[in-house]
Amino acid sequence: METAKIPSKPLPQATPWSAPFWEAAKRGELKVQRCLDCGKPFFYPRIACPHCFSEDLEWVKLSGRGKIYSFSVVFNYAPSAFADDVPYVVAIVELEEGLRMLTNIVTDKPESLRCEMPVQVIFEPAGEDFVLPKFRPVDEA
């Protein structure tokens, strides 16, 4: 096994239309687009509504509450940039508003995680320019 130095964490490769999402995260808010024509919210940001193709969109704030749809605790053979983080938890969280996102669960007890467990958003800085929305089990909050 190589002993190369740990590369820096990959930061989100943002797009012009996702900028409001990342700006909101810096303020501690979880925001998504909602279509003004069909009324549906969606994640992740798009240039047009993925349901009805309208460009008439607004940004709305979410509650940040959700539940774990699935999770996996990474122990070995993580990508190089994450080698020092193991064990860490990758999860898909289903938000109250019905949207799903990939994230990390921040917990001291990864062995206690279960599907459908309630979680609440927290915000963790990544480098100087980004804040990532992550989640913590409600009973650890």
Binding site: K9, P10, P12, Y44, Y77, P79, D85, V90, L102, F130
Partner: peptide, 15 residues
């Protein structure tokens, strides 16, 4: 794997 929405969280094929 999405460089915006999944890679920054340590997603890879084992996860």
């Amino acid at each position: 794997i999405s460089k915006e929405w999944e890679v920054p969280f340590g997603q890879h094929y084992s996860s």
